[in-house]
Design a binder for these strands. Structure first.
Lengths: 190, 190
DNA sequence: TTCAAAAGAGATAGATCAGTCTATCTCTTC
DNA sequence: GAAGAGATAGACTGATCTATCTCTTTTGAA
């Protein structure tokens, strides 16, 4: 049985490589070199590079969900919870090693809807949207909650892209203001 | 002097390849094969693959700007012009060979801000934002126009991503509704 | 201490990558 | 029809890609 610490170290290193360089642009050689691990250690843990990518995405999605769940479970009205999500994003895009959303990049690089990598990334986005819809459903009707959650997700995705495109945290601050305006227009106030 | 029709055919074929498969995933061999053109025809027209990518992006940006300028120059209030932009996007994402925004993909695959491909894609997004801000400046103060243009661009980018992620035209319809709500909140009505 | 499993190291396969080069072909223009 | 320019086909280079195989060394538990 392969050692789980080596496997995890590979996943972490691969994540850093993929988000920095992209999935296609980085090779196995670079990943095992940066992880300081033998080639066969990778291939004993993962059948292929694509399986490594899937594991990276799965772990990032799990981590992301946990952090967002924590924000959603905090007490307070929907508007405060959603504002906290935008604040969380603002801190994220400010980070030195911010390179955009790895799930959005996965959708870009694996555009085919039949590709498992594509599907995994799409699932993360849909889950994000569902989580925000659940928060909103406590205060507005289901169809309004779905609309707002979809719009808020678009603002976030667009802001992450523009943050990556050089606008930095200013993009997320703008997105938050727009989100709050949308919530206010639906009668959702603190 | 190389024949301009061959060069243009290469650019068109490369565009189709890049948007379908991605920049790194497609090789020179595939491009010249699909263009049914000799290898040296490509390298006599473009010093490198990256230069071909830049030419593709430049031509797409020019084409995009022309189409958007046409919408912006149509008579009518800002709200109508902006709604027309969302309508135009809705038609686009419905197209059979829609594969997301090639500029967003370029930013994803060439994440380094120093990379010319990255810079070219960012320039297109900034120009798009400036164009919408110009439309809005006829009806609201400059700082509000800039805020709205930025928010609208985020809605569009997010909607294009979600359309690519399986939501199709519904994403753009949602984005348009959100955009109209934002405009209404700023006092911009037809 | 022993021993089996795992990791390391590196050669290797076979494909593909971007890019160069040459020899041949085709078309236009004089 | 000759000359010249551009296109074509394809061999070729050297690097890189994913993945496999083998052999040696290390590790950890009985």
């Amino acid at each position: 049985m392969p050692r789980p610490d080596k496997r995890q170290h590979l996943v972490d290193t691969a994540y850093a490589c993929f988000k920095r360089e992209g999935f296609h642009a980085i090779g196995i050689d670079r990943i095992i070199s940066e992880a300081d691990v033998a080639r066969m250690t990778l291939y004993r843990n993962f059948p292929s590079k694509d399986d490594l990518i899937l594991e990276v995405l799965d772990q990032r999605a799990e981590r992301f969900d946990a952090q967002l769940d924590r924000l959603a479970e905090a007490p307070g009205p929907a508007r405060i919870k959603l504002a906290a999500i935008f604040d969380w994003y603002e801190i994220w895009v400010k980070r030195k090693n911010f390179h955009g959303c790895i799930f959005a990049h996965a959708i870009a690089e694996y555009g085919d809807a039949e590709n498992p990598v594509h599907q995994r990334a799409v699932a993360q986005k849909m889950h994000h949207q569902q989580m925000m819809a659940a928060i909103l459903r406590t205060e507005v009707a289901e169809n309004r909650a779905d609309f707002l959650a979809s719009a808020l997700l678009m603002l976030i995705e667009g802001a992450v892209l523009m943050a990556h495109a050089g606008q930095g945290a200013a993009a997320m601050i703008t997105a938050r203001a727009a989100a709050m305006a949308l919530l206010a227009a639906e009668g959702i106030t603190p």
